[in-house]
Amino acid sequence: MEHRTEKSPVLPWITVLVISLGLLTACGGVNATPLPVYWNAPAFTLTDQDGQRVSTSDFAGRVWLVNFIYTACPDECPLELMPKMRKVQELVKADARLAGKVQLVSISVDPDTDTPSVLKAYGKAFDADPTLWRFLVGTEQETADLLENGFKVGLTQGHSDEASSEEHSEINHPLRFVLVDAAGRIRGIPPSSDMTAEQFVEDMRRLVGRRIESGDGERSESGERRAEIGDRRAETGERRRPESGERRAESGERRAESGERRSGIGDRRCG
């Protein structure tokens, strides 16, 4: 006797569904959870690697990614923060959708050492494109206020003596990136170790996409309202024209009737 195993008709559909969901996710068809909104990015005016004054307003309308570095850093900056930002720059430049919509910013936490010329040389060592990646520096007080009260990532500066050398400056700076949307709101403050360059760029794409979608939505809504007003005007005009024509015709009939009556009275008088 042969034993036949009946296949469930549900299994193929489950397989198709799983594959479809995977494709939709890969193509952005399934909406991801919106990035949180923390607080507004701080207003500042600092100096860039070319000696130009740069303000928060210069980044208005763009999504920007910020990290905090200093050129004398022996480990985290050259090994983690700078290579990751360089990779982000590479990915951004390869995506035409992000052209002109993204800004990368590295803020120095060591203003005594990191002059604009020093920052410029440091940026070149990591292939920084000055049109996309800006290096900024302020005074010591501006830097402390910016990190502690503005971006709220904290900053600790201290000095220690090494046994075999003169005084050594040690700066415990934040190893976080800060993601800011086009409206100037902070949308992410993750530790660098929690995010890859690819993940940062994907979040930037989402924020850029939302900005474009929002703009199109506003224009579309405005267009629909104008069209609706036009339809109402046309409808009002159509109602007024026939109604006005009917009234004129009715008025003409009354005049004709009045003329006939007058003619009859005239005939009676002549008789």
Rank of each mutant, 00 (worst) to 15 (best):
W13K: 12
G51N: 08
E80H: 07
I14M: 09
L46Y: 13
T15F: 13
Y38I: 11
I19E: 00
T71P: 07
D75W: 03
L24M: 15
L23F: 15
V37C: 00
P42W: 06
N40E: 14
Q52R: 10
P83V: 13
L46Q: 09
C77A: 07
E76Q: 09
W64I: 03
N40W: 00
V37G: 08
L23R: 06
A41I: 06
S20P: 00
E76W: 01
W13S: 09
A43C: 02
F59N: 12
A32E: 14
C73E: 03
E76R: 05
V63D: 06
P12H: 03
A60L: 01
P42Y: 05
Y70G: 03
L17P: 04
T15D: 01
V30N: 10
V30G: 02
W39D: 11
L65W: 04
N40Q: 12
L11I: 15
P36W: 02
W64T: 00
P74K: 03
E80D: 12
E80F: 07
G51L: 09
D48R: 04
T25F: 11
L35N: 09
M82N: 12
A32F: 02
W13H: 09
G29Y: 09
K84M: 15
A43Y: 11
D50R: 11
L35D: 07
T33K: 13
I19S: 03
F68R: 11
